[in-house]
């Protein structure tokens, strides 16, 4: 899909993002473009700067240099909540639900956000019950059985698979245009992943652009349209998944080089 759409305007594009922590260059001149409706993968070995890249784009850390455009709007240096308000949601690698609240009450927070209220039509005082219903609807869509006790359990007692789903549900609830998924498959069993893949497909068919950081390449490649590989903060390859993985530099990054 990606190549065919390259004539269009990208929904998200970055130009030359660099970031260093003290002496460590975490990102060096990273530029990429993502088009509407794509599933875009970001791969790379540990410490290659994938999560830092997400943090930079979503405003959780400041960029040293470079620019981020969202729908041709320059959002570089915006505060995290303003970027989220524009329609860029993200999950976190380390899941931390609002652990003292029941699972469905976790979604009240994103549903209360100005963006969800604007789009969802709750502006001007939705009733208390409304948001609860919407929350359970979203949870049902993401794989919590409505009639079971699961949506009403305290979030900290949920198993990992459900907590990962809750992270995604929290993103969907703000009605985003882009979701950054930071390792949603990690720590899940094969069957749990098998349950997650249709969700990814569903979000894609709903027109949400997905940018996925992933170590589980096999599962990623089943859904990704294009991938980008990072190594030591530099972009080393971009393109169709199976072309990228055959790239010499990507193989070196994952497997190491042979010393002569």
């Amino acid at each position: 899909m990606g190549e065919g759409m390259s004539g269009d305007i990208p929904i998200l594009s970055t130009k030359g993002i660099s970031k260093s922590f003290g002496g460590l260059q975490a990102l060096i001149d990273v530029s990429f473009e993502v088009y509407r409706g794509e599933v875009f993968g970001i791969i790379g070995p540990n410490g290659s700067g994938k999560t830092t890249l997400i943090n930079c784009i979503t405003g959780f850390i400041k960029i040293d240099s470079g620019t981020v455009y969202f729908k041709e709007k320059n959002i570089t240096g915006w505060k995290a909540h303003k970027i989220a308000h524009e329609g860029i949601a993200r999950t976190f690698q380390i899941m931390r639900p609002y652990y003292s609240l029941p699972a469905y009450k976790n979604l009240i927070i994103p549903l209360w956000s100005p963006r969800a209220r604007k789009i969802g039509g709750w502006r001007g005082g939705g009733k208390h019950g409304d948001r609860d219903t919407v929350a359970v609807d979203i949870l049902e869509e993401i794989g919590f059985e409505r009639d079971s006790k699961v949506p009403y359990k305290i979030a900290s007692t949920l198993p990992t698979g459900y907590q990962k789903r809750l992270e995604l549900a929290r993103c969907i609830a703000v009605r985003p245009e882009i979701i950054f998924c930071d390792e949603v498959f990690s720590g899940l069993s094969m069957s749990e992943i098998a349950g997650m893949l249709p969700l990814i497909e569903k979000m894609k068919s709903d027109g949400i652009t997905l940018i996925m950081i992933e170590h589980r390449l096999r599962e990623l490649f089943r859904v990704a349209d294009r991938v980008m590989a990072l190594n030591f903060g530099e972009k080393i390859a971009e393109g169709e998944p199976f072309v990228v993985i055959e790239d010499k530099r990507v193989k070196e990054a994952y497997l190491g080089t042979e010393e002569v």
Partner: peptide
């Protein structure tokens, strides 16, 4: 109330509240 839940969310996980587009 919902707004009270948002405040409890700030206590539990303020980063996720920011990621939902709410100014902490």
């Amino acid at each position: 109330q919902d707004i009270g839940l948002v405040l409890r969310g700030v206590k539990d996980n303020d980063q996720a509240v920011r990621a939902s587009g709410i100014s902490i």
